[in-house]
Computed example of a mutant assay.
Amino acid sequence: MGPSEDHTRPDGTDDLTVEALGNISEALEAVEIARGHLYTFHRLSGTADFTLGKGVRQLREAGHSDLADRFERELVGRNVLEGRWTFQIVEEYDDGYYTLFKSLEKIARDALVEGRRHLYEAELKEGRRTHGRDGHEARPGS
């Protein structure tokens, strides 16, 4: 048994189209990773600010009020970019670049290959797997 219909190119679809959509999909995967790193940046920046706050309280308790005041005034709760905390950066990225990228990638798949995903990878799998061998099935349950 071969790949499911969802992972087989529609009749008349040429190699270059499948390759192009594969590259667009690969680019989207990189964007997904970048988005994950952006969320990591968001989480780490928030953690740093709260940990900084704890350190500033400890400075104050240790009698270093002037230095604690300066940290509190200049750094605790400060914007990481002009006018923005990290949640605002994440929202702008998600609502702009990320949403547009996902939308255009889906539009291309819908227009060119009936919405099918990962055709390039599915064809790579077909070419690399050992047909009829355990662990090399085309899909689950085959």
Rank of each mutant, 00 (worst) to 15 (best):
D14I: 03
E32Y: 13
E19Q: 04
L28E: 15
Y98Q: 05
G96I: 03
E92S: 06
V18E: 10
N79T: 14
G12E: 10
D6S: 02
T8C: 02
S25F: 15
T51V: 14
K54M: 08
L119R: 14
I33H: 14
G96Y: 04
E105L: 00
A30H: 15
R70Y: 14
R109H: 05
L104N: 06
R70C: 06
D94C: 03
T17H: 10
V56H: 00
Q88D: 02
H7N: 13
L104H: 07
S25A: 07
R84S: 02
L100I: 15
I89R: 07
V113E: 12
R116I: 02
R9N: 01
V76C: 09
N23G: 13
V76E: 09
F50D: 00
K54Q: 08
E32G: 13
G83W: 14
H42R: 03
V18M: 07
L52T: 00
A108K: 11
I33P: 08
G55K: 09
E114N: 13
I89A: 04
L59D: 02
G46L: 03
D11G: 05
S103C: 09
L81E: 05
V113G: 14
D49M: 05
A68R: 10
L52K: 01
L112K: 03
R84Q: 01
D69F: 01
D95K: 13
G53R: 15
L59S: 05
N23S: 10
E72D: 01
L119P: 11
D95A: 08
R35A: 07
E114V: 11
R60M: 08
L100K: 15
V76R: 14
L59C: 03
D14W: 06
E91V: 12
A48C: 08
V76I: 09
T40E: 14
I24Q: 12
F101N: 00
T17W: 11
G63N: 07
Q58C: 04
K102T: 09
I107E: 05
D69V: 02
D110Y: 10
H64S: 02
S25T: 15
R60E: 05
E74G: 10
L44C: 03
H37I: 13
L67T: 01
H37M: 14
T99M: 08
